[in-house]
Nucleic acid binder design. Structure first.
Lengths: 251, 251
DNA sequence: CATATTCGTGCAAATTCCTGCAGGAAGCAG
DNA sequence: CTGCTTCCTGCAGGAATTTGCACGAATATG
């Protein structure tokens, strides 16, 4: 990765998140923290950002409350996203479902990872616009505006021509008995189809989705390869899922 | 391989990938890095690209800064967008090409207009996310990151199944003799294909696009149904286009 | 105050860049 | 055909840049 690209990326992330953390940046870019710190120092000298202990902040904090809220509110999802991104190996093909949690995977995708990302969500493609090496395949179809994903026969056909190594499924509810579910029948069918076309399927779930059910089941609990949850969920809430036979990963 | 071919290829790859790495280029073309570097040096002198340590970048990398892009679009593009949006009748199917000007059409689309919007640009779909009644069809395919549109065989096939009443074509340059052109061969082919699948094709053009030419022609001047330009362009600049036989609309 | 990060600097290794030069191919005049 | 010029290409080697590591200083946290 080129130095100037790296600096542009830092600025980009600064605008988006309202902050950058040196260590996280080094992890994502697979570089030493020293290099990142050097960049931050130089950019601070160019008046492009403000250097602070641990990272950097935008020079003119536009809407400081907004960026602060952004920074704290999605901490849980960010951890899930980073964990999931780490599961994707170089050269693989990953299918990303729509939703804010999966958008976080796209954001946390290491910038030097040469992978193929398939998605039926235009929102996800936006997150990958500035990824230096990832190839992005967009599945087309009739757009469901509510969740901003392509659906319908055209989408089903396009998905059938894809064979993904790993699929990150987005759901609205998870229940030990009722499995993974969502609110729309058509969407559930699409998601099920994607899972069938993928070697492995994983679900990212924040705490509030557990022990809930939505009208349309996508898959039973045992129908996925694993469930990824925040590490601070108490073990007793996870027990029913472990008993149902799904591997659980703590992020 | 001829030097000029090589340089054209470098520009092409720059447009496609948003970056060029000297070493990788030398490997791919089986040439010494010195030769590549010499090319890059010369092209930088010709203001065709920006030289950076390790390779080169496009001269004006797409400004991810939303406010900056918004500022560029400004008054002129808004007028064009509103005029074009007014040409779409209730019940019709309109195909919107990518680009900031066409995004303006999507933004200006009357909220009570029940139409079907087809596009291969995920950016455009984002503009339509909150439209109450418009049905949105997304064309999928391999994503070209620099212009954020779906391309390739899958996109071509999906387009072939669509029959649009009106197509708003985005171009980078317009010339009386060389017609409508853009910088990428693949993109030009896609745009031409969409035009063939549409009953009418219109081009929105701000002043700076007139009397310029890019490498790849999409259509000749007479190949479109009309050209929509800002009303403050002097008549003498429009005369060559009128003579070429294309109807002109002032917005 | 103690501990753990984070920071800055010096330094060495690796990579990339530039300059000058030589060999070879293409074009051209004699 | 020969000799000349011109252009392109690769190579050598020295300069410049970048990167990671080590170690002591500075800063945050409890």
């Amino acid at each position: 990765m080129l130095t100037s690209q790296r600096k542009a990326l830092i600025l980009d992330r600064l605008r988006r998140d309202g902050q950058v953390i040196a260590k996280a940046l080094a992890d994502d870019l697979s570089l030493s923290e020293d290099t990142i710190r050097r960049d931050l120092r130089e950019m601070a000298a160019e008046k492009l950002l403000k250097r602070v202990h641990g990272g950097a902040l935008p020079l003119s904090p536009d809407l400081p409350d907004f960026s602060a809220r952004q920074a704290v509110s999605s901490e849980e999802k960010r951890r899930l996203g980073a964990f999931a991104a780490g599961m994707i190996k170089s050269g693989q093909t990953a299918f990303l479902d729509g939703g804010t949690t999966n958008a976080e995977i796209a954001r946390r995708l290491p910038k030097d990872l040469a992978v193929t990302i398939v998605t039926h969500s235009p929102t996800i493609t936006g997150e990958l616009e500035h990824h230096p090496v990832a190839e992005v395949i967009l599945i087309g179809g009739k757009l469901y505006k509510h969740s901003m994903v392509a659906t319908g026969a055209a989408a089903m056909a396009a998905i059938a021509s894809i064979r993904a190594d790993i699929f990150f499924l987005g759901v609205t509810a998870i229940h030990p008995a009722h499995g993974f579910s969502t609110g729309d029948f058509e969407e559930a069918a699409i998601k099920r189809h994607i899972a069938q076309c993928s070697a492995e399927t994983y679900v990212l779930a924040t705490a509030e989705k557990l022990d809930a059910a939505s009208p349309c089941q996508i898959l039973p609990i045992k129908g996925v390869s694993g469930l990824i949850v925040p590490s601070d969920i108490p073990e007793e809430r996870l027990a029913p899922y472990r008993n149902a036979g799904v591997p659980i990963f703590l992020a």
